[in-house]
Every structure is written in C-alpha cells, then in structure tokens.
Design a binder for these strands. Structure first.
Lengths: 335, 335
DNA sequence: CTGAAAGCGCTTACAG
DNA sequence: CTGAAAGCGCTTACAG
C-alpha cells in the first residue's frame, strides 16, 4: 500500500537534493551521478512512491491515455470481436504505461469521442469498426489526432490493420471446390462494408484459380434480415445446392435455424460454412466449418502501431494479419 | 473545429482581464460582473474554447475519470451484460462531464486497476462483477478509492446495486406452479456466486408461499459443464419431469442443445425456462421463457451513485432494481 | 466586482 | 553532475 500523497518535492527535501535530481533519477533522462540515482531509487522503492502521471502529462503535454472508440449500435454476434480487441488493446497499452479511455459512438452521435478530444484527455485513438464515410475517422483527421483503424478503409491516409479476409475466403472456398462441391451459394451482408467486398473477392478468386471447375454458383448480397435468409434457403433447397457459404456468423446462425426448423440434416442434406468464426458457432450442433482470426492479436498490433505513431515513428499504412481455416462437422470431408 | 491551443491566459490577454476572471466566468464560481461574464462567454463561444480538463483536474485534485473494472475472464454469454452496463455507465458519465477509463482484471491479476489507481488516473470506480472475496474490491477499499459494485456482496461497507433476482425468480417460479406444473428441476451454477444463492432463495420462496402445492422438485447446483448438464437432463427425461428451470442462459443453452440432439420437442415433451434473459436466448427456436432486466439502467444507476459519492453525498448501501417476467414459447401456457 | 500570486506535481532548458 | 527557475493550464484563498 503506497503513500498516494508523496510528491517529488517531499522526496527531494527528505534526501536533501533538488526536485530536478529526483525527476531525473526516475526518468533516466539527463546526466546524474550513479550514487545519487541509487539513493533516490532506494527511497522511492522503500516508500512505494509512484509519480502523478497527470502532472507529468501536463508538463509534457501528453495524457498517457488512448481513446478506444467502440460502436454503441452493435449486433450481438459482434460482441466477442470487440471484447477481444479491447483485451488486446488494453493489455498492450497497459504494458507501455498507457491507459485506455472509452468512447462509445453511434452512426449519428460521436459526442463522447469529441469530448475526449476537446477535453484533451487522449493522445491518440483506436477505431474498432470502420464504415464508408466514417464520422469518427473524419473527426479525428480534422483535429489532427493520431489514430489507427481496425478494419479496412479506402482512405489511404488512414493507418489501418485488418485480417486477411480476402486470402482466407479464397482458401476456404478453394478447399470446398477441391473437395468436389459442384453447386454452392454465397449469402452476404451489406456491400457498403469493405469487409463484404473483400470476402467476395476472395470467394471469386478461388474460382478464377480453378479454370477447369464446372458447376453453378449463386450470390446473394445485402442480406441482413432473418426472413430474407429463410426465403433464400428455401429456394436453395429446391435447387438442391450442395453447400451454403455464409459471409458472417449472424447469417450463418439464421441459416442453421432454418435447417433446424425444417429438419434438414447438416451436413448430410446440406453443407454449411461461414467466413467468420465466433464462439457462438463453435457451441452449435453441428459445429461449423469457418475461418478463425486471432482478434486479440489484432487489438495488440493495432495498439502497438498507435504507440509507435505517438513515439513519432513512421508506420506503414496497411497491415494484414493471418487466418486459419477450420474444417468442422458442417461440411462432409474433414481433412 | 475548435482551437485546441487556446488557453485561459490567451483569452485573458485578449480581453484585457485577468485569468482569474476568465476562470470565474467559465466555472460560475465566485462573484463576477454580469457585463464581464458575458464578454468572456461570448469570446469563448466564438472561438470554441474548451478548457484543458487535465490542468483543471490537477488544480482541483480530480481527474474527471471513472474507472470501469471489467473481467477479462468472462463467459461468452455474459458479454451482452457487460456491454449494456458499459453503455449505461459511459452515457451517464459523459453527461456529467466524466470519462471512463477501462481496467480489465482477472481473478489473479488486477494490475491494470492498480495502475489506474497508483497513477491517480481515476476519481472512483465501478465494479461490473462481484465475487466472494473480491480482489479488486479489497484493493479499492484498502486504498480509499470510492466505488460502487454492480451485483451483490455480503460486504456491508460496499455500495452495491443489483437487480432483484430473488423477487424475479420467486415470481417466475410461482407462475409455473400456478400453471399447474407438478414436477420440476432446477439446474444452477456455482454456489459461491451470490446471485446463485439469491436465485435459489427466490425459487424456494415460491414453494413456501404455496403450502398446498403438491409435487416433486429436484435441485442441482454447482453445474458448469456441458456434459454434466447432459447427464442431468437424461435422468430428468427418464423421470418425466415437466419443466427444467435453468439459473442462467449458459445452462439453458446447454439444456436446449441436448433437447435438440435427442429430438425432444420443447415445450410439448419438456418445458424449459431460464432465470436470466439474454438476446442469445431470444434468437433461439423456440424462444425461451425467462426474466428480463434492464441492464443499461443498471449501469446508469450505478454510475449515478458513484457520481453522488464523488460529490460527497451519502448514498445508501444497497439498491435493488426491478425485473420483468417474459413468458415465451418454451413453456406451455402463455398468459 | 476584480486581480496578483501561490499552488496543483511534474519536466526541462539554462547555468554553473 | 546538480540546482534554481520557469513553465504546463488551470483554480482559489487573499487583498483590494
């Protein structure tokens, strides 16, 4: 239990040195005698002194806080993603001596983020979701606040980091094709989301790489409603499609619900895969073939990039992280 | 776009008054002429000046930050709870001019919280989960940091706020009994969790209030594993129990999975209810009868209490919030 | 009603 | 190698 009222001045007086000296002994900056440094450090440890970071910040024009921008209008299946991001970010920040300040924003209201910025409470920010024409992003740019965006943006000025969705979808789709599937359908969400486009490109790439593949593929985009999914699945059942590929696990959950209600056996009567793996799907019966990303790593790396930027280092504009394809019960051939 | 480099000194000089006057015009504290106040305020608005809260904090020995303590070792079904708490807290804090600083803790590591406290980054804290012998709670108490705990604790010194789990479980159980159910089983989680005890007490209370009720009830506690649930459900099916009552939605999810695999129709062959409602359950087929709490309200109230404490007001030790029983497809008689 | 001055707890040129 | 002094951007007794 440290004394939270101890100040640098107390220590200086107690040790008969100047505040300057104490400050230097702690920070390691500036020349200082080995002897005195030791004396100070011993005192500091013995009394569990820890400096007032806020005062330090004021003097250095820093806050040692990072803004974490979280969407308030989330879909429930996205929660594990944000949670893991948070975990990775908060750990990395903490290890570097920074704290994380929360700003929840919605599509139309970014007041919390504005507050954090105008009140000068943060040194930089991390966006955990990016949209086309992203309000938080625009605001940060206009106000010269350094930030990194988790997810992909077309804005080349933004430092961004994302998983390699395109590559992942390419590989998973390729495996399905190589396994002999001759008819499949893709159900995807909103095309404004850049991730949707990347997934689609990956899907298509798998076909392009297999010029000799023969069969039928159907594509449904901009689907975000359970009933729509139901209709689509109905028609796909009639057409005797072999496999339904879902772009995310919300859609996949819908598809599985339909299967369950209609008592269609997965994978015997219909195979199902998802382009995104959440723990939600892992708990389902049957377990779903999908792609796994290390989201906590994504958070750690994002935070690491921001810290580099704050140190004045140059960082590259776009970083892509890996993936892992997981074959599970919902498809026929496990590798 | 405000000028983030404008200071109180600039304004004072520009207006030919003292910094003191500017400060007073902004804060409303101390006597000041109506005339001068207006001049200052107009200048401030015209130039979008907003004070440096960190400097203000240093002078007043405050940070205007609240610590939000979130568990890092969560179960996935708890996420919506934490998310909604966060939302409520962050909104209330924001409206009161505070920001929210994140501290993720695990059962054995509370270093992030310690950092926030020793670095003097927060004025108070909110715990979003309480355990028996709660490390974060103990730490905050030892260091004299004001806090409020969401959830229940036996510690009478802690300011705590919770939903009325006992009352809610009493009412839902009562409805089942009044509906004519004559055999039921309760499956619950860890008894160390105070919420488990409260739910159990509510369950029992319903029986006590119905002295004339005849039938059988079985109770299984300390269950937290899918396989255990499976075994229990097996035996309950054999015993032809009419209804399975789950203490939380993780357990309920397990029970429903078993039903699905064994092709037991709910509610026709077995009724199922949960003592906690999460959106996870609402999306299931069939939808599950359960209890609904306004978690965002819980967050708002918790934050409100902490703010009161920081103002030096007395707050009562324990606050209980309401609930709503939702009858859905998983039980036979909807009201 | 208004202001000069000291203070919050640090850092950092500048001198020595 | 060390220190006195000014400064970070605010607030607040104390005087007038």
């Amino acid at each position: 239990m440290e004394d939270r009222n101890l100040t640098i001045a107390d220590i200086a007086q107690e040790l008969g040195v100047s505040k300057t000296t104490v400050s230097r002994a702690m920070s390691g900056k500036g020349r200082i005698g080995e002897e005195t440094r030791k004396r100070v450090q011993e005192y500091v440890e013995a009394h569990h002194y820890s400096p007032n970071v806020v005062a330090k910040g004021l003097a250095q024009n820093k806050t040692f806080n990072l803004g974490l921008v979280l969407p308030g209008d989330y879909h429930i299946v996205e929660l594990p993603f944000f949670q893991k991001c948070m975990m990775g970010i908060s750990r990395t920040a903490s290890a570097a001596g920074y704290d994380v300040l929360l700003s929840m924003v919605t599509a139309d209201k970014i007041t919390q983020l504005k507050r954090a910025v105008t009140n000068r409470k943060i040194d930089g920010a991390i966006l955990t979701r990016t949209l086309a024409d992203d309000a938080p992003m625009r605001y940060l740019q206009e106000n010269g606040v350094p930030f990194v965006a988790i997810g992909s943006t077309e804005d080349v000025h933004a430092v961004q980091i994302d998983n390699d969705h395109r590559g992942a979808c390419r590989e998973l789709t390729g495996r399905l094709l190589d396994d002999g599937i001759r008819s499949l359908a893709l159900i995807g969400g909103r095309e404004e989301y850049i991730v949707t486009r990347n997934r689609l490109r990956g899907f298509e790439a798998a076909f392009e790489e297999r010029a000799d593949w023969k069969g039928s593929r159907r594509i449904f985009l901009n689907i975000d409603d359970e009933r729509e999914v139901e209709k689509i699945v109905d028609s796909l059942l009639e057409e005797r499609v072999a496999c339904i590929v879902c772009m995310d696990d919300f859609l996949c959950g819908c598809v599985l619900n339909v299967m369950q209600t209609k008592r269609i056996a997965v994978p015997e009567q219909m195979q199902v895969v998802s382009f995104y793996d959440s723990s939600m799907l892992a708990n389902r019966i049957p377990s779903v073939t999908s792609i796994r990303f290390d989201v906590e790593e994504l958070g750690r790396k994002a935070c690491g990039l921001l810290l580099q930027m704050l140190e004045g280092e140059e960082v590259k504009g776009r970083t892509l992280l890996g993936y892992e394809v997981r074959m599970r019960e919902s498809t026929k051939r496990c590798p």
